[in-house]
Amino acid sequence: MSRHALSVRSLTVEFATARGQARAVDEVSFDLVPGERLGLVGESGSGKTTTALSLLRLIRPPGRIVGGEIRIAGADVLAASPEELRRMRAARIALVPQGAMSALNPVLTCGAQFEDLFAAHGERGGAARIAALLASVGLEPQVAGFFPHQLSGGMKQRVCIALAVALRPSVIVADEPTSALDVIVQRQVLRTLVKAQKEAGAAIVMVGHDMGLMAQFAHRIGVMYAGRLVEIAPVRDIFADPRHPYTRALIESLPDLERRGEFRGLSGLPPSLLDLPPGCAFAPRCPRVVERCRVERPGPTLLAGGREARCHFAAEPVHAG
């Protein structure tokens, strides 16, 4: 048995397109210990959601996991048979979806959806167990008798969280779980998620693009760019001393109530996955680019404190720029 709740090695996912194979996730590796919260950030198309959904093997054609290894508490996800995979989902790794609005079955009461889940995994449900789960996300027991349309967005997302932790999985994957919610509800739902995750002892991979939210939620942050995990580090280190220029740009682009009338965005666009530059994928937008970056793709540089960055200059701090 591994001491890791989740271990991902060289995960590679490709999508077949009319113009060739697009590598959406390129040799991504990371580990999570039980109870750890990892935030995966990046722009749309960076591969963060594809990485997260791969953990549950939820990639559909034309997408395909073409290589790598995923282990959840030691169990091999990619080698699992369809039946083993079915039993693994929800019990070992669960998903909190992005749109709670459409994730619940509209014609079943919430209680019935819990019963379905227990039945599918050969467990006994019952009103008391469901009430306890609902209580753990701050909902009244009566909610079991409600249909999804009778609940607000925040309540629906709490039901989804209760469903995700119901079978005490080792890993929870949360795909922008609060992006569809109002800001005030967002904080309450995140609190609920943190509480439920701690009680279940689960590790979380949360996908998001809001670095501010991640600063508060995650223990560690993984930054993705053009399918590659370009930096991964504990949250305080990455904010205090980012080692990849893209990470710095993401942090600087945050609006801040301390700074007004200042915009520090990033110029340019991410490259097409079908036409990646030969060297570093970030080189065309990078403020500290040198000739070497355009020809040589940077491998991972391991740094003190379990940090890692894929930049030729990762050993030096990125200066404000």
């Binding site: 800001v183 005030i184 967002q186 904080r187 609190r191 509480k195 508060q216 939620f217 305080r236 904010f239």
Partner: peptide, 22 residues
């Protein structure tokens, strides 16, 4: 004030109270 409090401080050293009980 509620809206302002709902903004996550983009700084991990500032406590936003996510770990506290509801």
């Amino acid at each position: 004030r509620e809206l302002i409090a709902a903004l996550p401080p983009p700084d991990p050293t500032v406590d936003w109270g996510l770990e506290k009980a509801e």
